[in-house]
Design a protein around this nucleic acid. Sequence first.
DNA 1: CGATAATTTGAGACGTTTCAAAGCGGGTGG
DNA 2: CCACCCGCTTTGAAACGTCTCAAATTATCG
Lengths: 249, 249
Amino acid sequence: MHVEGTENKGERVLSPELEFLTSPTASCEMRQALQTRKREYCAGTILKVEAEENTATYCVLSGWLALSKSTIDGERQIIDVILPGEILHPTSADGHSSWIQIETLSRASLAVVPRAEWSKLEATDPTIRKLEATTIAASMSRMSERMLRLGKGTAESRIAYALIELCLRLTAIRQSKNREYHLPMTQKDLGDFVGLSSVHVCRTLRRLNRNGVISTMDHMDIRIHDVETLAHIAEVDLDRLRSEIISVR
Amino acid sequence: MHVEGTENKGERVLSPELEFLTSPTASCEMRQALQTRKREYCAGTILKVEAEENTATYCVLSGWLALSKSTIDGERQIIDVILPGEILHPTSADGHSSWIQIETLSRASLAVVPRAEWSKLEATDPTIRKLEATTIAASMSRMSERMLRLGKGTAESRIAYALIELCLRLTAIRQSKNREYHLPMTQKDLGDFVGLSSVHVCRTLRRLNRNGVISTMDHMDIRIHDVETLAHIAEVDLDRLRSEIISVR
DNA sequence: CGATAATTTGAGACGTTTCAAAGCGGGTGG
DNA sequence: CCACCCGCTTTGAAACGTCTCAAATTATCG
């Protein structure tokens, strides 16, 4: 169980301020609200426990989040990874509890906006609703891609898919170039993400390394050498996937 | 591959008109729109193929839908099951293609509302937006519960969870009483839903039968005898799950 | 530089899949 | 009305992939 983690890498090529925050489309109110609600967290912080009282909206300004569920015996499944620029509504159907546990994978800065204030922002700025809608669509889409592989894919295809998905998303927000990025996750985390034991994650990663498809350096620095092969292993059509999980801006 | 199926059971205790359609909260425009867009489909119809052009909103008036993704070699994963009263936006992040394949599991009647018209409805009727939000929250919530079990659960817990989830949802819309309902799915379908082969679904179902936890009669008529045990196998807290996946009305 | 966490590798156990064949049931056409 | 066919369920046996356990190695941080 992560408590007040010590890792603090994970955002190296990060623009000082977030894109949509400074973008001309964002309204003045929006920028202000995010700025005043801005908070910093260190890696491994648990922001919200499953089923905890929650009605706020989270905007990720920098850093990575993991959304997870756990079984009674402590097994964790990472449901989704949230990257900078994305919006998160952890409120479940009953309208007041969180359907998910939220934790930081790296040092992160977030704007946590209470429901009332967020509704006001939505009303004043029509672009926000659009951003929200595409964020949700993208999230659903990548969740189902992962479910498909969780249900029917091999270990290799699950890992390959995760690496490709993250690469595409990071590239879209200019936090990856040349198919190279830092994963602020341990192999255990990655295993919890793709439904494998950390041991098997290791083996699979090593095999991909040996075959020259990717290389991992240092603590989880990923470099994809042969996207075609990786996409083939992941059973992914790159262009289609991109259009499904990347919001148009 | 299902094409124009022949099965047409699946909605036996169905109220002639859907709850939220006739409810006093639904606006006049809403009711009219749904009525004029209403269409009937027989079981096993594929409404929308993955990645197909799509910007409409689907309202399920009666019957069951399955949302699925498939691998290149034809393996299908059912991502979610949609029941009467629920709303579906199959539009992915690019704004015009569908992120999912939609098919009917039983005979079903749907209102397929084009985007422009739906936006107008949203604008006129504030309750629709709320309904949409809770529908999405509920869907996310149950998808993640299923992902947790797909990643970390045994065959038994996956099946047990699916049976409980469906029982709760059906009970909420008064299509199940006394924890008894008809599942308009084959064992293959159920396997595609929970990530198991049809053979293993059969074995697992039979074991639950032998142990007196459930009984299955006829073609997939489920009766849950011992909810406590089933919930325990599924690793579920019934009240918490209910509040997370059932929309308050 | 020692303590602690994360990765790597091996070997065996376990659960699920696959293959195969038999049983059941419902629908169709003779 | 019966015979036949096809799809679904059931059961068995073997193959396969992943997990677990265990131990060695390597990184990380105070």
